[in-house]
């Protein structure tokens, strides 16, 4: 054989132990289960203010579109091919929190406080008609939100072989 088996069975011992504190500093992901959500809570009315200050330039008034794309489902009949948005496409509400916190605003990524992200998440859910204006979003309530398009998602069924899928 061109490659010995030893390579794939040895333990090498390189790398260093990492502390929980070090992990916590960059472990920013949020799962559908709610794992990873921080303390705090948000409401749409507060979120609207932040959105108008920090997001509207790229995503338009009410999040209905711009250079950064539409975030809000529009029923505008003039728009022929519907843009995929949170309201009509996203399967999990936790993804909003995760993504906005890690990547937005595009020109100042990583600049929002957890508090701001909660408010923005509530705002985007409300603007998409998913939650009530007064609903409080937090680590308990966010994972429970049923997204309208959730059921559309199916796993990949392509397998190779002669069948085109």
């Amino acid at each position: 054989p061109l490659v010995s088996i030893q390579r794939d069975s040895t333990l090498y011992g390189f790398g260093r132990a990492v502390t929980q504190t070090e992990i916590d500093k960059i472990d920013i992901d949020v799962s559908p289960s709610g794992r990873g959500l921080p303390q705090g809570k948000g409401i749409a009315t507060e979120g609207k203010k932040i959105f108008e200050a920090k997001c509207v330039a790229c995503h338009g008034i009410g999040g209905t579109g711009g250079l950064g794309g539409a975030l809000v489902t529009t029923n505008d009949p003039k728009i022929k091919k519907k843009e995929k948005t949170i309201g009509n496409y996203w399967p999990y509400a936790t993804t909003i929190f995760d993504y906005v916190r890690r990547a937005m605003p595009f020109n100042q990524p990583g600049s929002l406080s957890n508090q701001e992200v909660y408010h923005l998440t509530a705002y985007l859910l409300h603007a998409n008609g998913i939650i009530d204006e007064k609903k409080t979003i937090d680590a308990q309530t966010l994972p429970k939100i049923e997204m309208p398009n959730h059921k559309a998602f199916v796993p990949d069924d392509r397998t190779g072989g002669p069948i085109i899928r």
Binding site: L2, V3, S4, Q6, R7, T10
Partner: peptide, 19 residues
Amino acid sequence: IADIQEPVLDKAHVRFRYL
């Protein structure tokens, strides 16, 4: 014997590795 990275080509360098 050292490990040799495939593909082993005619008149070509091969990368070898030995633990």
